[in-house]
Computed example of a mutant assay.
Amino acid sequence: MPGTPTLESRLVVRERPARAHVMHQRWEQLLFLHWRWDAAEIQQTLPPGLFVDTFQGEAWLAIVPFLMRGIRPRFYPPVPGISNFLELNVRTYVHDAQGRPGVWFYSLDCNQPLAVWTARAFFHLPYQHARMQAAMSDNEIDYTCHRRGEAHEARFRYRITAESHPAQPGSLEFFLAERYLLFSQSPRGIRCGQVHHTPYPLADVKLETWNLEPLLQAGFADPQRPPDHIIGSPGVDVRVYPLTA
């Protein structure tokens, strides 16, 4: 497959870019639910120029709900009522012909209209308007997402344990979590965006409730099994960089 990523190329994208970033974000209470998936099926959903990324021959689909905090442009402070919101994405893992590994998003639900507009307009990402809540009690998160125009709500109840660890390079956890590039389809073709943060502190998750609705909305069939891999993270501070070719 053209440009299949090496471990070196996966490590290189973790380095902080020399160019200026455009935005600060904090991602908190991330839940990563992953299913093994047929690589050929995933490939059929990708635009020309992108290729399914696999770990030991297997492709993966994920549902990732989390909290966005302190979102702000560079040089500006957070704005009450705008800078904190929720996001839930459905994603898979890809690379381009240059061997750059990244994420392809099928959808990104969000409960902040300005964030939806900004991401669609400037990053060409498939953001969706949704009603969302994340009630927290005794470190347990009760997370709900109801996308505009859809009949059913998705719900996730989970607790991220206190002890955390970084992913070991070359491991499945590293393949799934350590992603610093995203690809999007723009009128000018495939574009690449980059983020920078310290490696995720990963932690076990006590998962009480989970839902397949986001996968079904993305057009995938019910896998008829629980997630094949579950991991969480308390969060990271993130710098966001502008799109490039």
Rank of each mutant, 00 (worst) to 15 (best):
H129S: 13
V116C: 12
A162W: 01
P166F: 00
R155W: 10
E208Q: 15
W37P: 01
R159I: 00
Q168S: 14
L216F: 07
E208H: 11
K206N: 12
N111I: 06
S184R: 10
H129R: 15
P80L: 05
E8I: 12
S233T: 07
G102V: 13
Q29L: 03
G81P: 07
S9N: 13
P214A: 08
F156R: 03
P169I: 11
P73L: 09
R74N: 10
W104R: 10
M68I: 00
F183A: 07
R69E: 00
P77K: 10
S164C: 14
R147Y: 02
Y143I: 03
H34T: 09
H129T: 13
D109E: 14
R16E: 15
Y200A: 06
A167Y: 12
Q194A: 14
Q133L: 03
V52M: 02
P234I: 05
E87D: 08
R147H: 02
L114G: 09
F123Y: 15
L114D: 06
C110L: 00
I63D: 12
G232Q: 01
I82L: 13
R225D: 02
G149A: 05
Q185F: 02
H129W: 11
Y127G: 10
Y158H: 05
P187A: 08
A18W: 09
A245K: 12
S171M: 06
W37F: 07
A59I: 12
G193I: 09
H152R: 14
P169C: 05
V240R: 00
V195E: 04
L172A: 08
P166N: 12
Q224L: 08
L33H: 06
A221T: 15
R239A: 07
G57V: 02
F174G: 15
D204I: 00
R225V: 07
T144E: 09
G170V: 11
E213T: 10
M23A: 12
Q29E: 14
L46E: 15
